[in-house]
Amino acid sequence: MAYPHSSSLGARLLGVAASLAFALVAGAGAHAADEEDIWPALQKDLFAERSVVEDPSAVVLEAPYRAEDAALVPLTIRIPSTASAKKLFLVIDKNPAPLVADFTFGPAAGAGERVLETRVRVDMYSNIRAIIETGDGRLLMATKFVKAAGGCSAPALKDTDAALAEAGKMQIKHLAATGDGQREGQIKIRHPQYSGLQLNQATGYYIPAKFLRVIDVARDGERVFRMEGGISLSENPNIRFTYAAGGEDMLEVTAEDTDGKIFKGQAGPKGS
């Protein structure tokens, strides 16, 4: 009910999410769970019986071993030009909602090295995984262990009033070319990304989850990627990404949150 948008895959994962969140509530469970390898169960929820293979030649994940701020952990994913990728999944095994986001690449993602950088919340020491689905349907993975805790329930908003007042504000930037005919862009969207695990300070009730569920990025009308995401994407979502150079290089972004609010922005190379 709280996630009317959920795809069946998302719904299955959110089922996992609820049971994990409950384990966290039980307190001591949080520590006991540290030792368990929950990936086999997660993999089944995400990909059913399909095999997922570690392959550093197909996808590379960069993450800090020890995060400075569990609510703002930077991740960089690199997909070499030799690899084909139609989808990318980001997974944090022990988060209440393990599927951070999935990205579906479009024609404007290009064929050179694809680089994607964003920031996530990490709720407890966990493996983080970047998994690509190749053009011929294989699932290839990179894994990093990250030490961080509390990112999902932490009220990361340091200035609650300012953050709410500016929700929906968007910045789109063109960065430098990265080679291989690829260029780099960045989108920033003001959004509190309420996780549903944060207390409402005034009432003592939990703030209902409210987050960006879709970010769709196009270059000159062709899709770069469509992201479907959840509560593990940090507040004020920030994504740097590569795309194939086009004619105008006009970047268009459409985002939608769980309230159905639509946020749009576009920018040419000379600025928004």
């Binding site: 509390g150 329930s153 932490a154 009220p155 609650t160 944060q198 207390l199 409402n200 300070q201 005034a202 003592g204």
Partner: peptide, 10 residues
């Protein structure tokens, strides 16, 4: 009160 309540549990 708002800030501390939100962080109290943690």
């Amino acid at each position: 009160a708002r800030g501390l309540s939100a962080r109290a549990e943690r």
